[in-house]
């Protein structure tokens, strides 16, 4: 079956870790993930500048590795990202910012990508809250 996942909560929220565990289990169960969409505060997961304490799970790194290893479509909402200071090189140049913090495998795009994923998948599973 095909899954689309959407995340809403910041990196330190338990639901952002739960989403990763669900995604791992979905692939392990032989299912497909058509897209992972990062919305609202979850866009911080895609920032390459986040530093986690040494004795804590580095969830941004864990998500990055997971998306890279399985060649998933990891889409970050561009409007949510820009307002939270998560920019790729192109957007940093467009808005005259000194640096950027979003690189591959992440892609900045619009909310339409969430809608499209929801249409393409058999199930859309949203993760937010605590």
């Amino acid at each position: 079956m095909k899954f689309a996942l959407a995340l809403f909560a910041p990196p330190h929220a338990p639901s952002s870790r739960r989403a990763l565990r669900f995604a791992e289990a979905a692939l392990a169960g032989g299912h497909e993930i058509v897209r992972v969409f990062f919305y609202q505060d979850s866009v911080q997961l895609a920032s390459s500048l986040t530093v986690s304490a040494q004795d804590e799970l580095d969830l941004p790194a864990a998500w990055r590795t997971f998306v890279q290893e399985h060649r998933l479509d990891g889409v970050v909402c561009i409007a949510a990202a820009l307002r939270r200071g998560v920019l790729n090189g192109e957007e940093a140049q467009r808005y005259g910012r000194a640096g950027h913090n979003l690189d591959a495998p992440w892609e900045l795009s619009g909310l339409g990508q969430l809608h499209e994923a929801a249409q393409e998948a058999d199930r859309l599973i949203c993760f937010g809250g605590d």
Partner: peptide, 13 residues
């Protein structure tokens, strides 16, 4: 959890 989401027609978070 994954299989449970497929047993129902839709999932509401």
């Amino acid at each position: 959890f994954v299989e449970l989401t497929l047993r129902f027609e839709r999932v509401n978070s």
